[in-house]
C-alpha cells in the first residue's frame, strides 16, 4: 500500500456555485465530492475507491460553509462547515451537547480542522460519530440535485456500510436539526483504544423529562451493526416511565442483549456487547442528569 503519493489519475474541478456543482453531478460520470478529504483521500491512497474520474471540490461554494440558528430556532449546518468549528460553536454546545461531544471525540484536532459532518454522513461508516447524535436530535439531511431538493430523516439515511439513501447526482447540502424541547438532556459516550481512535462502540441518548418521568427518549449506537444503529423501540419503551437507577440498569441490560456486533481486528464481539451495556448506563445517567432530573 502506497500512502506517499496518489497514483490514481483524475481531473479536479472546483465549482464556485451550487448550480455549477449540481450541473457537474448531473452531467458527468464518476464524480466524487471533496469536502475535507479525510475519508476520500485515505480511500484513494488505500485503493478502496474504484471509480473516480473527477474530484469535485465543494469548498468554494459559499452557501455551504455556514452554521446558524434559523428563524424557527432550528440548527442549520452547512456541508462544508468544519467539525472543529462546529464542536466549539456556542449554540451547539449549549443546545446540542451530545453532538458537540461526539465531534470533539473524533480523530484529532488536525483532522477535525479538515473534516465535515456531510463527509461523515456520506462516508456512511457504522462508526460515524456524528450519526448517533444527529439521529437522536431528529436531524434532517438536506439533499439537492438538478431535479430538485429533498430532506431525509437521519434515521433513514444509512442503508449499509458505505451506502446511503442519497443518489449519485445528489449533493448533501447540509442538515437541519430541530431545537430540542425544554428539559431535554443529552450525552454521547464513546470507547476507543486511545482517544484519537475510531469507536470500538459509542452511544447517544437524548431524553426529554417531565417531572420525574421520561417524556421521550431517543437512543443510537455506533460500531455495533453494519450501519449507525437507531434504537427506536428501546428508546420509546422508556416513555412515560418514572426514572430510577433501576430503570437505567434494566435499559442498559436490554441494550446489551439487543445489539449483535461483530468482532474485528483488536475488538471482539463479546467486548463490544459488554461495553454497550456499560456505556449505555453512563450515557443514560448523564443525559437524565443534564435534563435536570434526579435519580430515585
Amino acid at each position: 500500500m502506497n500512502t506517499r503519493f496518489l497514483e490514481k489519475e483524475y481531473d479536479y474541478v472546483k465549482p464556485a456555485t451550487l448550480d455549477e456543482a449540481l450541473d457537474i453531478l448531473a452531467e458527468k460520470e464518476n464524480v466524487k465530492v471533496l469536502a475535507g478529504g479525510t475519508d476520500l483521500i485515505v480511500k484513494l491512497k488505500t485503493d478502496a475507491l474504484e471509480d473516480m474520474d473527477i474530484m469535485m471540490d465543494i469548498n468554494s461554494i459559499d452557501e455551504l460553509c455556514g452554521c446558524c440558528i434559523n428563524a424557527d430556532g432550528d440548527l442549520v449546518i452547512g456541508a462544508t462547515a468544519k467539525i472543529s468549528h462546529l464542536e466549539k460553536n456556542d449554540d451547539i454546545k449549549a443546545a446540542y451537547p451530545a453532538l458537540s461531544e461526539a465531534m470533539h471525540a473524533m480523530a484529532s484536532v488536525s483532522v477535525r480542522n479538515m473534516a465535515t459532518m456531510g463527509g461523515n454522513f456520506m462516508n456512511a461508516s457504522p462508526v460515524a460519530d456524528t450519526a448517533g447524535p444527529a439521529m437522536c436530535y431528529g436531524a434532517q439531511v438536506c439533499l439537492k440535485s438538478k431535479k430538485g431538493e429533498r430532506t431525509i430523516d437521519a434515521t433513514e439515511f444509512f442503508l449499509k456500510p458505505g451506502v446511503t439513501a442519497a443518489e449519485d447526482d445528489e449533493l448533501l447540502t447540509g442538515f437541519v436539526i430541530p431545537k430540542p424541547a425544554d428539559n431535554t438532556g443529552a450525552a454521547f459516550v464513546k470507547i476507543g483504544r486511545v482517544k484519537s481512535d475510531i469507536a470500538k462502540v459509542s452511544i447517544t441518548a437524548v431524553m426529554e423529562r417531565e417531572g420525574d418521568t421520561v417524556k421521550s427518549c431517543r437512543l443510537a449506537m455506533g460500531s455495533v451493526a453494519p450501519k449507525p444503529l437507531f434504537l427506536a423501540d428501546i428508546g420509546a419503551g422508556l416513555e412515560g416511565q418514572k426514572m430510577t437507577e433501576e430503570l437505567i440498569m434494566k435499559t442498559a441490560d436490554q441494550i446489551r442483549d439487543f445489539v449483535k456486533p461483530i468482532g474485528d481486528h483488536g475488538t471482539t464481539a463479546e467486548y463490544r456487547k459488554e461495553m454497550s451495556g456499560l456505556i449505555a448506563r453512563d450515557c443514560l445517567m448523564e443525559a437524565w442528569k443534564r435534563s435536570g432530573g434526579e435519580l430515585a
Binding site: T3, Y12, K14, L34, T38, I41, N59, V111, N113, M114
Partner: peptide, 18 residues
C-alpha cells in the same frame, strides 16, 4: 502537520490544488 492560518492540518491528506 502544518498550519493553515492558525489551524493545524495534516498535509498528507490535502491535494495541493485544493
Amino acid at each position: 502537520t502544518v498550519l493553515k492560518g492558525d489551524e493545524s492540518v495534516m498535509s498528507c491528506l490535502v491535494p495541493a490544488v485544493a
